[in-house]
Structures are given as C-alpha cells and as structure tokens.
C-alpha cells in the first residue's frame, strides 16, 4: 500500500546515482534486494515504478528483485535457521530470544545503464 512512496524513493536514489557527465542516460535495470518479510508487493511496486518513470532516464527500466530469505538467530541457544512461515519460536530450545538477521531489506544495490551511443 506504500509502494508508490517506495517507487518514488527508488527513482530519487537512482537519478542521484547517475554520474552528471553522462549525457542522456538511459537506465536499463535497477537491481534490488527485498526481504520476504518487508511489506512490499512486487506487482504493485512494478506498477507504480512504471507510472512515475515516464519521461525520466528510468523509463522502461526493469526491476530485478533479489528476494532475501528470513534468517534468524536464537540468542538463548545460539542456533540459526531460515524462517519459511510466520513462526519465529526457536525449534531447538522452544523459548529462545530470537533476533532477525535478514528478511526486512528494501535496498537498491546497483543500476545498469545502456551503453552510450557513439557517433
């Protein structure tokens, strides 16, 4: 539901990252890392991104999303594992103090520019 705001931030960060000396830059791809537990719906994000990138260097750019699994660590018994459902209870000691290591990321890792046209 807040994907438009995230798309706007993506565009801002991407445009700020393009070197000033590149004339008429054209972004082909944005590489993202999004955690499985982050509240981001891929389809909504793509939809919003397409709308707001019209007439910008990111028009028609593709979003390549690397989905980050939810991994946790139990501070009580020192075990670590990947969480595949909504259950965070420690399966080893049952009552552990479980901290999340990954799974909440909403990050932009890089962008790929089309080659400059040589005339």
């Amino acid at each position: 539901m807040h994907e438009m705001g995230i798309a706007q931030q993506l565009v801002q960060i991407a445009i700020d990252s393009i070197p000033r000396d590149i004339e008429n830059p054209k972004v082909e791809k944005l590489n993202l890392r999004i955690g499985r537990l982050a509240s981001v719906v891929e389809h909504s994000l793509t939809f919003c991104f397409e709308i707001i990138t019209k007439d910008t260097p990111l028009e028609n750019a593709r979003l390549d999303i690397d989905v980050v699994p939810v991994t946790v660590h139990c501070k009580s018994c020192d075990n670590g594992w990947e969480v595949t459902g909504p259950v965070f209870k420690c399966p080893f000691c049952e009552d552990g103090d479980v901290e999340m290591l990954t799974g909440r990321e909403i990050e932009i890792t890089s962008l790929e520019l089309a080659d400059e046209l040589k005339i």
Binding site: I6, Q9, L10, I13, A14, S17, I18, P19, L32, E105, I106, E107, I108, T109, S110, L111, E112, L113, D115
Partner: peptide, 13 residues
C-alpha cells in the same frame, strides 16, 4: 555500465 549503489530505500525516513 553498472553503477554500484548499495542504499536502503527507506534511508530518508
């Protein structure tokens, strides 16, 4: 050309 960024999208917030 790939430009490395490595930024949190909600960094501004």
């Amino acid at each position: 050309m790939e430009i490395n960024i490595q930024k949190k999208v909600l960094e501004a917030n």
